[in-house]
Design a protein around this nucleic acid. Structure first.
Lengths: 136, 136
DNA sequence: GACTGCTTTAGACTAACTCTAAATTTATCC
DNA sequence: GGATAAATTTAGAGTTAGTCTAAAGCAGTC
């Protein structure tokens, strides 16, 4: 069942436009961590008008600001990917397929306390690299 | 005491040039994780000739290939930084100063086994964000 | 239904690199 | 020490991911 993007946006005080709706709807119903380019390709022909890349970037930044999605960087030096899973979590990158999998935060031992007192840790991210068996 | 860059490069079978020498020497004797731009600024006037950005990038890539330095990405969406500490280690980013500190690998509990069997973890990196007391 | 101001658009612009082709330099061989 | 072949350096063009701009188009309000 599709998550309703319109209610989501209205509840965050975001003004509705067809562009924002299709982008939010797409992101809320995929777990494939798309790039801005992939979002553009996925939604461009769901709109009756020409979609601009600038709108995709604006909307993605807006959705990040509004807390609807997260920006994720997994490939060193790579471009931003977007993730509608806004729970605190880590990532696993399948280095042969490039696919990214969310790892629940609780599944990884907490590291907050592992540095000595000099370091005040506010946040940390773990990115795993390797292979994942039989994608399902 | 300065680490001798020339021996380092020769031992890795790298052809010596003045450009490579000053860049390697600079990196081997700093712990400030400079960007390519910062490397350029730091070494450009140590050379009697005009230094090209392309040479800096070429040399940095070459030194990464040769295992003399590591490429590090700590700021989401930020540019590459270079680290002559080639031991396996993690990073702490001071979010108010932007400074990066190396965290010895052993100082963080090992996470290799924290994912279930579906995931074959080959490597992982932890990046901490926060504040660090009295930089020393 | 008109208005005000937020959105969208195409295209120019930027930052961080990479590529290219010509000129230069390195290491080697005599 | 000089000639040679191959690697390196250089300036500048090209690329990629993303931001900025200014004009045109809509959304929500009165």
């Amino acid at each position: 069942m599709l998550i309703a993007a319109d209610e989501m946006l209205i509840s965050r005080g975001v003004r509705l436009t067809p562009q924002r709706l299709v982008i939010a709807e797409y992101l809320l119903n995929t777990d494939c961590h798309p790039t801005a380019e992939q979002v553009f390709d996925a939604v461009a022909n769901a709109l009756p008008v020409q979609l601009s890349k600038a709108t995709v970037y604006n909307t993605l930044n807006m959705l990040v600001e509004a807390g609807v999605i997260q920006e994720v960087y997994t490939e060193p030096g790579g471009c931003a990917r977007y993730d509608a899973n806004t729970m605190r979590h880590h990532h696993f990158v399948d280095t042969s397929t490039g696919r990214i999998y969310d790892i629940p935060f609780e599944q990884v031992p907490t590291l907050e306390k592992s540095l000595d007192g000099k370091y005040k840790v506010k946040n940390y991210t773990v990115t795993f690299y390797g292979d994942r068996a039989e994608d399902s």
